[in-house]
Design a protein around this nucleic acid. Structure first.
Length: 831
DNA sequence: AGCACGCCGACT
DNA sequence: GTCGGCGTGCTC
């Protein structure tokens, strides 16, 4: 109907466009005829969306079917001559959306660097057909005058012209009266990096001409100096050829020549200035690349991996910490690159800024692209486009680099495969980079190497079942010894009253010895801030966040109370806000407190702290690591950040402050996580010649996780835990889908979760549904949180069908007026 | 998700 | 009276 008056022929094209909005439907736009021959799936388009929004989208399909129920709008602009998104990426966006129960547009939004999207800015224009100026109020006239004088002014600039607080309101009135027109100006965000260069006018670029010029400038000493500076950077004998490229303008500045003289020479037409586009990444000298040789053990492991790939798509490489996994990776990467295929190596975010990348760079030079979240938008676009053009055949990156435009991957390496940071938690898509990597590799017929010293149960289980090939390496590199691990029984120490500020005597003695021996110590406490809560000893008041159901953490240096969930910050009260008592005390221990206490106990020692708070700035992380590696620092206090991919030669002691919190966390995975974390942290000790020592403070030394860590017995630990998992049908025997309800009213959130759980139980049986339970934190940002979990056996159930059913049930609940504003967040494979 | 529209409280 | 709070609905 909507199209009844329009005439379409075989030359009328339509496109389905992926837009960065969480809406299930496809959006169909019409293609203006002049773009017909240029339109391709995978290219970016700018489209009007809604009343006056302008968005960048990706064409997912070109077709000739006019939509039946509405009139398609026209594309406003085609941004690319050639697609910048590959067919494989389009497929992956859809696969991730289906599997993780979100929308392809959301996946696209996350997968593309934001520099590839456009910025739009509202600009204002006079309406040429408006003549009723006398009908306007004074204020409106005033603003209209400014617009008249500054044609096409932006909204933001307009408010700078006038003190009026509510410019927008008056502008709105002017729009209503048709005095002005507002439109969206769109511009690309990516800005290529340019440098300014200087060269001689072509006719002067010869030895003869230049010599003449030098003598002509005899009277203008400063200008002559500029010219001589130029010649010192080129070469007078090959001037004609060298002059084409010119020299960087900064060279003149570095040589401290007069900038006004340079300008004069440019104005006289002797020099000319031009710009070239350069890469944002420093080029690396490719003549000086490092060669690596493998030890016998590494050689054997490498060969086993290769023969594993002959049979299986995925190889799980279980190599203990310090076994030199990186060298083996390098060897494999080189082999795959020689075959002309691409390689992607995934690293957990935090490991990426460090030593491993610089090591890889020494081997692969600038063939290797690095994709990291601390890069700027512009830098990320350059890596993206570098992969697309084939300039980077090898990329090391964080989890989102699985969405880069690879065309012929031969190998994906997922290092520290067990790391839970591979799973994106918020926002959608809540994907697991390792699992998506396996899917992507399957699609591109590539191999996957999962590496870990403490494999996830999922992967180890797959390996033992024979679905993955398993390679193990139990030798440390060189003569490095595994650290000796000891438990410190805090109950015992408390009884003997040897505990000082929560530190055991054993640990303090060990630190002291270490300081005296000029060796370094790492203290691990997985809690940042100074103290986890503030408590009034008079009335028992506890500082809580007003919009989340958690206590506020005391941060000493900032003198603040901070909510670690919503980021809310307030200044530390001097007296109790309830009873005005002065007896308000910090309780519990965070990294700041440990740092302070250690400084107290060892006033001579130099300390560093590494946690979320000290590593916010772009290079802060690197700075701390450098400072610590240089060896002047005695003790490094840190959260789990310190456990990832760092090798310090001089660390001979690792102290784990409180192991009990990790072990007793209410989650079926807590033992697995605690084992992984303790093993990783222990691995930081004694990487070179010195055998390291690890001291774990605990009040429950008999706990079997600790016993397994002590004996470095991954297999024993796995064997015991997997039985329990099987008994309770927990992963890897099942898949868990979590559904979270969020609402400002507790009862409504609870009721919605309850109803959903009820229908799911009816459909799938009581045993498969857990909950609803209130969230681990009951309220975050004023939203009450309830959770329902589905435990679905992989082998018995049709999980895609269950997902569809779940989606329908959520939609159904959202149509009921009581639950209209309840937010349902679905998390497939919750961790 | 954003953004506009629309319907009720507390204020110059 | 009106400003502006956020509930509701729509986006090709």
């Amino acid at each position: 109907m909507a199209n009844s008056l329009e005439i379409f022929d075989s030359e009328t094209h339509f496109v389905d466009v992926l837009l960065p909005v969480p809406i299930p439907q496809a959006f169909t736009y019409r293609v203006p005829r002049h773009l017909n021959e240029f339109i391709k799936a995978g290219s970016r388009v700018i489209v009007p969306f809604g009343r006056n929004r302008v968005l960048t989208g990706i064409i997912s399909e070109v077709h000739g079917n006019p939509p039946e129920k509405y009139k398609a709008k026209y594309i406003s602009e085609l941004m690319d001559e050639e697609p910048i998104v590959t067919a494989s990426q389009l497929w992956l966006f859809q696969w991730v959306a289906d599997y993780y129960m979100c929308y392809a547009g959301e996946v696209m939004n996350m997968g593309l660097p934001s520099g590839l999207k456009v910025n739009s800015e509202s600009r204002i224009q006079l309406n040429p057909d408006f003549f009723e100026h006398d009908l306007l109020e004074a204020k409106e006239q005033e603003i209209l005058k400014i617009i008249e004088e500054n044609e096409n002014i932006s909204y933001a600039d307009l408010s700078k012209f006038i003190d009026e607080i509510d410019v927008t309101k008056i502008v709105k009135k002017l729009i209503d009266k048709h005095a002005i027109i507002v439109y969206e100006e769109v511009k690309e965000r990516y800005v290529p990096k340019k440098i300014k260069k200087i060269r001689l006018r072509a006719s002067l670029a010869s030895k003869k001409a230049v010599l003449k010029l030098i003598s002509e400038l005899e009277k203008s000493q400063k200008q002559q100096a500029v010219l001589l500076c130029y010649l010192s950077h080129t070469s007078i004998d090959t001037l004609e050829e060298k002059n084409l490229h010119g020299i960087d303008k900064v060279f003149f500045k570095d040589a401290e020549t007069s900038s006004s003289s340079l300008k004069t020479l440019i104005d006289k037409g002797i020099f000319e200035q031009f710009e070239i586009t350069v890469s944002r990444f420093d080029s690396i000298d490719t003549n000086d690349l490092l060669e690596i040789t493998l030890t016998n053990h590494q050689e054997r492991a490498s060969n086993e991996i290769l023969s594993g790939f002959a049979e299986k798509q995925v190889v799980l490489f279980n190599g203990i910490t310090g076994s030199g996994k990186t060298e083996i990776y390098i060897e494999l990467i080189q082999k795959v690159l020689e075959n002309g295929s691409q390689v992607l190596m995934l690293l957990p975010e935090i490991a990426l800024t460090t030593q491993i990348v610089s090591r890889l760079q020494k081997v692969f030079g600038d063939k290797m692209g690095v994709y990291h979240s601390k890069f700027s938008d512009n830098e990320r676009v350059e890596v993206y486009m570098g992969v697309l053009s084939g300039r980077y055949q090898f990329v090391v990156g964080v989890r989102s680099s699985i969405f880069l435009p690879f065309k012929n991957l031969g190998l994906i390496i997922v290092d520290e495969e067990h790391e839970i940071s591979y799973k994106q938690f918020d926002p959608a898509p809540r994907y697991h980079a390792r699992d998506v990597a396996i899917m992507l590799a399957h699609k591109q017929k590539a191999k996957v190497l999962l590496g870990s010293a403490t494999p996830s149960f999922e992967s180890y289980w797959q390996a033992l079942k024979g679905n993955y090939h398993l390679v193990e390496l139990n030798e440390r590199y060189g003569d490095a010894k595994l650290p000796s691990i000891e438990l410190v029984d805090m109950k015992e120490e408390r009884k003997n009253e040897t505990v000082r500020k929560e530190f055991s005597e054993v640990l303090l003695k060990a630190i002291e010895t270490n300081i005296n021996n000029k060796e370094q110590t790492i203290i691990f406490q997985n809690r940042r801030g100074y103290a986890p809560y503030l408590n009034c000893e008079e009335c028992n008041w506890i500082g809580k966040c007003h919009q989340c159901a958690v206590s506020l953490t005391h941060h000493l240096y900032e003198n603040t109370l901070v909510c670690h969930y919503c980021g809310h910050t307030e200044t530390l009260p001097k007296v109790c806000p309830v009873c005005e008592s002065l007896k308000i005390k910090s309780k519990g221990v965070g990294t700041q407190k440990i740092e302070e206490d250690l400084q107290d106990i060892f006033p001579e020692a130099s300390l560093l702290r590494m946690d979320f708070d000290t590593t916010r700035a772009k290079n802060a992380y690197q700075t701390i690591i450098n400072e610590f590696s240089e060896g002047e620092v005695d003790i490094l206090v840190g959260t789990q950040m310190i456990s990832k991919g760092l090798d310090f030669d001089n660390v001979s002691l690792v102290g784990v402050f409180n192991a009990d919190k990790m072990i007793n966390f209410p989650d079926f995975r807590s033992a697995e996580k605690a084992y992984q974390m303790l093993t990783q942290v222990s691995g930081r000790a004694g990487r070179k010649k010195k055998p390291g020592k690890v001291l774990i403070q605990t009040s429950g030394p008999e706990h079997d996780v600790l016993q397994f860590v002590l004996n470095n017995d991954y297999k024993g630990f796995y064997a015991k835990e997997i039985k329990e998992r099987e008994g309770f049908r927990y992963p890897p025997f099942s898949r868990i889908i979590g559904i979270t309800t969020k609402h400002i009213a507790r009862t409504i959130s609870h009721k919605a979760a309850g109803l959903l759980a009820k229908t799911l139980k009816e459909k799938l049986g009581e045993a498969r549904i857990l909950g609803p339970e209130k969230g681990l934190v009951e309220r975050i940002r004023n939203q009450y949180i309830f959770e329902v979990f589905m435990k679905l056996e992989k082998d018995k159930l049709n999980i895609p069908a269950i997902k569809t059913f779940l989606r329908e049930q959520i939609t159904e609940l959202n149509t009921q007026k009581e639950f209209k504003s309840v937010r349902f967040v679905v998390n497939v494979d919750v961790i």
